[in-house]
Amino acid sequence: MTPILLTTSDLLLAAGLIGICVLLSVVLSLDIHRTLAIAAVRMAAQLVLTGSVLLFVFGRSSVWLTFLVLAFMFAAASYEVGSRQQVCLAPSWHFGIGGFATIFGTVVVVLVGLLTALQPHPWYQARIAIPMTGLLLGNVMNATSLSMNTLLSAVGRERAAIEARIILGATRAEAMNGLIRQAIRTALIPTLNQMAAAGVITLPGIMTGQILAGMNPLDASKYQIVLMSLIVSGNMIGATLSAGLTAARLTDARGRLRLDRLRD
């Protein structure tokens, strides 16, 4: 069960591959060699840094250090979830709703995972808690930002249709329901694709990693099944919360559609 460790020459080989890609970009005038080189250096630096930080944190086995790392991850996710959206709410609401939905969805499924299926001792053991949280956080963040983005861009387009319902006596929940459902569905499409493709078209990341690390493939697949279920649940929670809260923010207590709260 010992994983095959990579040597310096393996890393040089990887660097060589990037070098060939850069060369190809120049030869084929793709004009991405600069971006590619910068991205490669950045990726390497980020990963080595992350590896070193995790090595340090795992060695300390301190609760506070673990929570500090998690807090940093949550803060970064709260920022990322709201960026790259064309239509926004006022910043505090935008990042507040996105961050809250992401963190809430992640925390719920991480706790379920740590307290039931995995049960490390202690349950907050950095070696398990941090990678688990990272994996789920990334997924929930994607679902949440897709959900918010779908709702925010649809609400302007569908203004007349939503208001037609409100005018005819619909409550704000009745008027926004269709859009909320559409946003949640859109947010879950990548996850559903991933689940459908799992094992047939792609070998999922966790399973691949476990197999490479020496785990029996059947055990690795069980691991993947549990994690995939956690991912889909976290995504569902994050997408539903963010769509619901965004819809609530875009209406008011008198059931009016408040697109004046949008920023371009």
Binding site: E158, A161, I162, E163, A164, G169, E174, G255
Partner: peptide, 20 residues
Amino acid sequence: MPAHQWRRQVLYLPAEPGWW
């Protein structure tokens, strides 16, 4: 009164009505 009940009784017909 709740806003949706008000709007059902005091009904607005915009110049360009919307269709859902």
